[in-house]
C-alpha cells in the first residue's frame, strides 16, 4: 500500500514538476527571444561553483576605462567597489581621483572636485539627453547591469563586441550605423570598439579583440552581480544544511508513522 502511494506520489509529482519546468522554460526561451545564435563560451563565473577571474576582471576594468567609458557610464558602481576585484585603498583612491565630480562650495558655486572612493563611477555625459545628442541619437546604455539586462548576457556581449564584420553586399549600411552580425537587425549605432592592441595590458597579456571582449565581459559580469561569489558560497552551505534536514526529517517521519503504517 505504501509502495502504491509512493508510486502514485512520484508519478504525479513528476507530471506536475515537468509541467512547471515547461512553463518556466517557455518563459525563458521566450526571453531568449532573438533568433540569432552566438558562441557559447566557458566562463569562469558560470556554473554553480563558478568564481570570477581577478586578473581578467582587472584587465576588463582597464578596457572599460580606456575604451568604453568614453561613451558608457556605470552609475551604479562606486569606486570603493573595486576592492572586491583586488585593488587596495590607495589604488582605488588614485583611480577615483582621475575623475571629477561637481559639488557646491560655500559660496554656492558649482565647482569640481576629484572623485573619492565613496563616489559612484562618473558618467561621461551629464544626462541621458546629452549622451543621446553626442552619439547621433543613439543612447549608449549604462553598463552597470548590462549582463543581467540581456538574455544570456555574457555570451551576448562577447559576441557583440567581436561581431563586427563587413556587411553583405546587399545590405546597405547608412551613415553613422555599423554592421554587426550578432546585433538584432544587424545595424548598430556603436562603431567597432575593440581593435588589436587597443589597450596595453600591464600583465603582458596579448590584447586581441577577443581577449579584450572576454576581459571586459568578466568585469561587467561582476558589476552586474557583485554578490555572486558570496551568493554561491552561502548557497552551498545552505544546500548541505537542507539535505541534512531533509534526510533527518524523512527518517524521523518514518519512525513516527511506523505504528500507523504497520500492517
Amino acid at each position: 500500500m505504501i509502495k502504491s502511494l509512493l508510486l502514485f506520489f512520484s508519478s504525479h509529482i513528476s507530471k506536475l514538476f515537468i509541467s512547471l519546468v515547461i512553463i518556466s522554460l517557455s518563459n525563458f526561451s521566450f526571453a531568449a527571444g532573438e533568433k540569432i545564435s552566438y558562441p557559447q563560451l566557458n566562463w569562469s563565473f558560470s556554473g554553480i561553483l563558478g568564481t570570477f577571474d581577478r586578473a581578467s576582471q582587472q584587465r576588463g576594468l582597464q578596457v572599460y576605462k580606456e575604451v568604453c567609458s568614453g561613451c558608457h557610464g556605470m552609475r551604479l558602481l562606486a569606486y570603493r567597489n573595486l576592492k572586491s576585484i583586488g585593488y587596495n585603498d590607495d589604488e582605488i583612491k588614485a583611480f577615483a581621483a582621475d575623475n571629477n565630480v561637481n559639488t557646491i562650495n560655500d559660496d554656492g558655486e558649482v565647482v569640481e572636485r576629484p572623485a573619492r572612493p565613496s563616489d559612484k563611477f562618473v558618467s561621461p555625459y551629464p544626462n541621458d539627453k546629452a549622451a543621446r545628442a553626442a552619439n547621433g541619437g543613439a543612447y549608449p546604455p549604462d553598463l552597470s547591469l548590462i549582463i543581467k539586462a540581456r538574455p544570456d548576457g555574457a555570451n551576448y556581449l562577447h559576441a557583440l563586441l567581436t561581431g563586427y564584420v563587413d556587411a553583405p553586399k546587399d545590405q546597405k549600411v547608412p551613415d553613422g550605423m555599423y554592421y554587426n552580425k550578432y546585433y538584432s537587425g544587424n545595424l548598430i549605432g556603436m562603431p567597432q570598439p575593440l581593435y588589436e592592441d587597443g589597450v596595453e595590458y600591464a600583465d603582458g597579456t596579448k590584447a586581441t579583440p577577443d581577449q579584450m571582449a572576454k576581459d571586459v565581459t568578466a568585469f561587467l559580469a561582476w558589476a552586474s552581480e557583485p554578490e555572486m561569489e558570496d551568493r554561491k558560497r552561502l548557497g552551498v552551505s545552505v544546500m548541505l544544511f537542507l539535505f541534512l534536514l531533509t534526510a533527518l526529517s524523512y527518517f524521523a517521519m518514518k519512525q513516527i508513522w511506523a505504528p500507523i503504517k504497520e500492517k
Partner: peptide, 16 residues
C-alpha cells in the same frame, strides 16, 4: 534512537 532522531531533527530545524 527514535527519540534522539526526532529531537535532533527539530533541533536542526530550530538552528536553521
Amino acid at each position: 534512537k527514535r527519540d534522539f532522531l526526532i529531537v535532533s531533527t527539530y533541533t536542526i530545524a530550530g538552528i536553521g
